[in-house]
Design a binder for these strands. Structure first.
Length: 420
RNA sequence: GUGGGUGUAGCUCAGCUUGGUAGAGCGCCGGAUUGUGGUUCCGGUGGCCGAGGGUUCGAAUCCCUCCACCCACCCCA
């Protein structure tokens, strides 16, 4: 007593999702599942907790994600565990562990759920964030790349998003990329002193990132640096040309961004990203790409090339939320008095079983009507003594104000028609 | 990790320059007589003014320190 208890609040970078916003989340997820089904993708659920080694080897020892953003702790038996910062490595781990390569056909898997990265939070970026992703494993064909891209754009469109832009690139493979990076590193030695501070550092640690620099003053210098597009080896070039051809066939618009770089080491050949204007600085709604060497680097003896993407669900919801209208309540039942409440409760059960959303509150009628209105009820049913003895109940249409006396059966029939 | 901004009622904010211990709108609750909502009118509820310290007779207001949140860099979804 007297000592104010310190309020416990949500951990930094995490948040509570409340109604009516959760309806938008559910809608986005339902649309994604529906689209994935039509492309014959099936859900996979992997643990949120994995051995730290999985991400170190999968995502890349030197990436920002692994070096400074993971939630890692030592378990009681001394093994190092990590809250997943992304899900592709886990999916591939499961693919190898359960020998999914032995199943026939390309394995097409999708997932949705929380990921964790310990970054400084800002608009569209959280420490616990949600991704919806899919992976197609077991094919190197550029036709698969195009189909995956087509599918994810379908999700965006069906969810009501517009005004987005698809960015495309090829980052080469084990054969041509290391050579390119080395060449870039050499050329940067001559000019890095003229670049911004970040780029001077990147010139050493991650030369590819210099190409992606947004500092205005650096652009003329960056423009003169070699392009990955020109450095692609023949197989990579052929693959990329085919991907573009397949997209063109579908009438899918894209912009080739030779300088677009992705932050996960496993990407190879095709990479892509979708950006949207109204999201703040974190304007990337989804990112993805091919990862033909990932399975081997996780210990697979069979070559298991794959391609996938993941949507930033928080950002997608942010982009479509305003257009979403609240889910209405079908019926508000206003019983007058204790006997009426018992009677109405039974009626409510019947109507709910028939699929209607029903709220039931005993109160003075004026108060009940007020509540019905505030809850956005489409109809209100009044159950009083008169109604119970007559077997006919007053059903009021809340938008027109019109009211009629109906029997129980008539109410159910009338409502199911009106609601659909 | 680095910068900038903001912390006053459940929400959005005013008040701070020129110290005299709080206001608006919305929300919520109630009323305008009996079993009918939305509009209008009236009333009510609600805040240790982010926390701690300092200056002062007196601090939401001035000074210091911390904390939280937001935005941006970095990086990414």
């Amino acid at each position: 007593m007297g000592f104010p208890t310190i309020l416990i609040k949500a951990v930094k970078g995490t948040r509570d999702l409340l109604p009516p916003s959760t309806a938008v989340w559910n809608h986005v997820e339902a649309v994604a599942r529906a689209v994935f089904r039509t492309y014959n993708y099936h859900e996979i659920r992997t643990p949120i907790l994995e051995e730290t080694q999985l991400f170190a080897r999968g995502v890349g020892e030197e990436t920002d994600i692994v070096t400074k953003e993971m939630y890692t702790f030592t378990d009681r038996d001394e093994t190092s565990l990590t809250l997943r910062p992304e899900n592709t490595a886990s999916v591939i781990r499961a693919y190898i562990e359960h020998r999914l390569d032995q199943r026939s056909g390309v394995q097409k898997l999708y997932y949705m759920g929380p990921m964790f990265r310990r970054e400084r939070p800002q608009k569209g970026r959280y420490r616990q964030f949600f991704q919806i992703g899919a992976e197609a494993i077991g094919s190197e064909s550029p036709a698969v790349d195009a189909e995956v891209i087509e599918m994810v754009l379908e999700v965006l469109e069906r969810v009501g998003m517009s005004g987005f832009k698809l960015l495309l690139n090829s980052v080469g493979d084990h054969n041509c990329r290391p050579q390119f990076v080395e060449r870039l590193r050499q050329e940067l030695k001559a000019v890095s002193s003229q670049l911004c501070g970040d780029c001077q550092r990147r010139a050493d640690t991650n030369p590819l990132r210099v190409l992606d620099c947004k500092v205005e003053a650096d652009q003329p210098i960056i423009d003169r640096l070699p392009s990955m597009q020109d450095a692609l080896c023949d197989p990579c070039r052929t693959h990329f040309t085919a991907v573009k051809q397949f997209l063109d066939d579908r009438g899918i618009a894209y912009e080739v961004r030779p300088r677009m770089v992705r932050g996960l080491d496993y990407y190879m050949r095709t990479t892509f990203e979708v950006v949207h204007g109204a999201l703040g600085a974190q304007n990337s709604v989804l990112g993805g790409g091919r990862y033909d060497g990932l399975a081997e680097s996780l210990g697979s003896k069979v070559h298991s090339p794959g391609i996938g993407f993941s949507i930033g669900e928080d950002r997608l919801v942010m982009a479509v939320e305003d257009a979403h209208k609240p889910v209405p309540l079908d019926l508000f039942i206003a019983p007058l008095g204790e006997p009426a409440l018992r009677h109405a409760s039974v009626m409510a059960r019947e109507l709910r079983r028939a699929g209607l959303s029903v709220e039931l509150v005993e109160a003075r009628l004026k108060r009940a009507m007020e509540l019905a209105n505030k809850l956005g009820a489409r109809f209100t049913l009044i159950v009083g003594e008169n109604e119970m003895t007559a077997g006919r109940y007053a059903l009021k249409n809340m938008s027109t104000g019109e009211q009629q006396e109906l029997t129980r059966d008539e109410i159910a029939a009338r409502l199911t028609v009106a609601v659909n």
